[in-house]
Simulated assay, not measured.
Amino acid sequence: MTYKIVLWLFCANFAVAQTNYYFPKPNSTWEEKLPKEVDVSPTKLQMAISFAEENEYSGSRDLRIAILKGFEREPFHEILGPTKKRGGPAGMILKNGYVIAKWGEVKRVDMTFSVTKSYLSTMAGLAEDKGLVASTKDKVIDYIWDGTFDGEHNSKITWEHLLQQNSAWSGELWGGKDWADRPPKEGGIDDWKFEKPKEPGTVMEYNDVRVNVLAYSLTHVWRKPMPLVLKENIMDKIGASTTWRWHGYENAWTEIDGLKMKSVTGGGHSGGGIFISAEDMARFGLLFLNDGRWKGEQIISEKWIQKATTPSKPNVNYGYMWWLNKKGNRHWEGLSENIYYAAGFGGNFIVIDKQNDLVVVTRWLEPSKIGEFMKLLNEALD
């Protein structure tokens, strides 16, 4: 019996030690440690950094041009929200909360594209934590009754369907038609324009119009603009800078309680989304690495993070707007299946590696190279 108690106490203390991370203060220098101080090979770490610097995203640094080129197959595609010329490759690597590597302009504010989706997902998590949404299994029509979810098909859609991008919501929002967003490569426009929507929950379809429907719905549930919700509930509490912004389309206005509010986007493929620095992205990642706690405060429930990182049935590599490194089409071979990450157009990533107490932020890394970069970093840990 004594042996069991001692073993239990040892395991409990070990678990606490594993989550005893350093948290940077607001507006202060982020404390750094030499790689060798945290059992990381300096030489191999530098190889990973050099790889990131040498494999810059191949698209134009004028992101307006890169966006129009990247989505030229979409009928009626146009820039509807703000864009910004980007910087060069940049990033940060945190070990136990300490900076062990950084490259490029880590304070520069740039677009993040679909990394924004992971922030939007977190707004849904806060809504559930606070009881504004009872359960992600609830049908959205029970909360949003203005016609957005009317009809035999759309009325079936739950919050979970929207978060997992398998809602197959059908309609138009802010001038964007669901069928025109990321059309299939095969078949003519009439083949997929009039195709019957998939049954909600059965097929994942990456679709910004439907993501923007989620942003719109959360704006009405919170009765506040999403940037304000993010600022008050997350970014201020983790000591983020005042430089980040969250934009919507020029025409994306709605009225709540007599107040005109902007409904933001969950990405940037028509402009908009979150514009942010690598340092502020790293703070957000550190919050998730520590299971939703910042120092002593539980900001996001651990229960929500577990739900957000649970594989969806249609796609084992996707949870609630976080990508998961499970064995599937997007698996990074040789790396922990517990890794999860936010990913955006142009090579923007926030990677959470709980097993190794790591947060990795990359900006403008050629997207196809992220798996190779993470393997090089993993080799530095050995």
Rank of each mutant, 00 (worst) to 15 (best):
L80W: 07
R293D: 12
E195S: 15
L218D: 07
S121D: 04
K224E: 13
I350V: 14
E250D: 08
G91D: 04
K185S: 08
I157P: 09
Y3N: 09
R363V: 12
I189R: 09
V16F: 13
N338R: 15
R293C: 10
T122W: 04
G201D: 14
I234D: 08
F51W: 01
W179E: 07
K237A: 14
I350T: 02
G285T: 04
F194D: 14
P35E: 14
M123N: 05
T254W: 06
S114Y: 06
M321K: 12
P183M: 12
K156N: 13
G296W: 02
A342K: 04
K237P: 03
S336T: 05
W8E: 03
L126W: 10
V264T: 11
N207C: 01
S336N: 01
V209N: 12
E255Q: 10
K262Y: 01
K4V: 07
L287K: 02
Y119G: 02
P225M: 09
T116K: 00
H161S: 00
S155M: 05
N348L: 04
I350N: 00
G171R: 14
I141M: 08
A215G: 11
F373L: 08
L132P: 00
T112R: 02
Q165S: 12
T309P: 01
T122Y: 05
D190N: 10
F288Q: 08
